[in-house]
């Protein structure tokens, strides 16, 4: 199940005000996240949600902590048994990045960003091995651990652990006997 959430629309609904396009203040961030969580409540066990910042003017640190970090902590880092929720962040510009980067660092989180051209990349707290593995899976489309091990020249067991870790962090989706990068669904059959 794929869902698209326009954050600026949620913001305006939350504040009941058309004038504000900035994600500022912690109470605002908490209210926006609560609204996003309400939308996610209808999602199935496995879901991919696009969190779209395209029409958000700016976001401050407090709001980024509430909207981005706490959302990821709740659905991703908590490794919920009942839900496999994946997030792809779209429309994140330099104007948003400082705040988002700071909260990812603070909480040791990572996420997948999609740029204007539809190309995805992994950002935040990941090591070089994780980054390389994610990138390879993204480029290849659905990939089994053994195939990735040969592509990266690493031991299959180490590769399996790497992929499993990325899956637990909801940066890779597990599909049948392989893995697909969040943001790389178009490559599944490619």
């Amino acid at each position: 199940m794929m869902m698209h959430i326009d954050v600026s629309t949620v913001l305006r609904q939350t504040l009941s005000c058309e004038l504000y396009s900035n994600l500022v203040t912690r109470p605002t961030g908490a209210a926006v996240r609560t609204q996003i969580e309400a939308l996610l409540a209808d999602a199935r066990e496995v879901s991919l949600t696009i969190i779209d910042f395209s029409h958000v003017g700016m976001i401050d640190f407090s709001c980024a902590d509430e909207v981005v970090a706490k959302l990821l902590l709740r659905y991703v880092a908590a490794e919920r048994e009942d839900r496999e929720a994946y997030f792809l962040f779209r429309g994140v510009t330099d104007d948003h990045w400082d705040a988002i980067e700071a909260v990812l660092e603070r909480h040791g989180l990572a996420l997948v960003l999609e740029d204007e051209g539809g190309v995805a990349r992994i950002v935040g707290m990941v090591n070089d091995g994780e980054r390389a593995a994610w990138q390879k899976v993204y480029e290849r489309g659905r990939t089994a651990a053994a195939d990735l091990a040969s592509a990266l020249g690493t031991a299959p067991e180490a590769c399996e652990r790497l992929l499993d870790g990325l899956h637990r962090r909801r940066l890779l989706m597990r599909l049948d006997d392989g893995y697909v990068a969040v943001g790389g669904l178009t490559n599944v059959h490619g």
């Binding site: 401050d60 640190f61 407090s62 902590d65 970090a69 706490k70 700071a102 909260v103 603070r106 909480h107």
Partner: peptide, 10 residues
């Protein structure tokens, strides 16, 4: 909350 205190750091 570990997310607090980021404002002044920013």
């Amino acid at each position: 909350d570990p997310g607090r205190g980021q404002g002044l750091a920013g």
